[in-house]
Amino acid sequence: MAHQATPSSQKALMMELKSLQEQPVEGFRITLVEESDLYNWEVAIFGPPNTLYEGGYFKAHIKFPVDYPYSPPTFRFLTKMWHPNIYENGDVCISILHPPVDDPQSGELPSERWNPTQNVRTILLSVISLLNEPNTFSPANVDASVMFRKWRDSKGKDKEYAEIIRKQVMSTAAEAERDGVKVPTTLAEYCIQTRVPSQDSSSDLLYDDLYDDDMEEDDEEEDESEMESIGEAGGICAVEDGGTSTRHYDNQDDSGNEDS
């Protein structure tokens, strides 16, 4: 490994960027902060419809270390966010962005941490699900966490949390206008507009297309294994939900059999 050699992270990042621009994750737009710097990405995030974040236009930067994907990137919101798992400075606190060091204080299992098969796609999916499902067990913003719990436990009667978020969402309209972006507010817009059709049948692109498909499959596998490991780690909510829904299915199946 000579000194001038291009770091392997460069190749990995180039491939991920290409894949994410050709087949974006719903609700995300990815660009480079500066054309010449592959290690700094700008992310524009559309708030998912039918949530508190609907209509929001949020900006974040992802910074990659030179030994990516062996070490995780950092994910920092530039838009002000009031959220239990986002620090004052915008840094997002999720376990998959933490290296798997042994730290019993953190409450995070090594199995929930970063590893080199994670990628920007899995990070974006984690971030978008975190927005509406904060983890109150290890808050980065304690005040926001307390307020969120009041809102959740009162089933929305205590409106303070929701009002702050809506206010922040409203204030992002100016930024969207400045960037000339129309923020999707319905599920249909949110899903369709972010999908870029790239049906080019020229032979040069054939290999690339195949390749992207492979990447997709990889991601799905990872997501599954991630979910499994969360289940193992004792995600109480997930287990309970699984139990009830299975019972539901059983009942339906039984009644179906009796009828026929």
């Binding site: 490994m1 392997s8 190749k11 990995a12 994907p69 990889d218």
Partner: peptide, 13 residues
């Protein structure tokens, strides 16, 4: 799955 390069190629190093 680590370097994301094809197996029939080599690792980035």
């Amino acid at each position: 799955g680590i370097c994301r390069m094809p197996f029939n190629g080599c690792c980035p190093d």
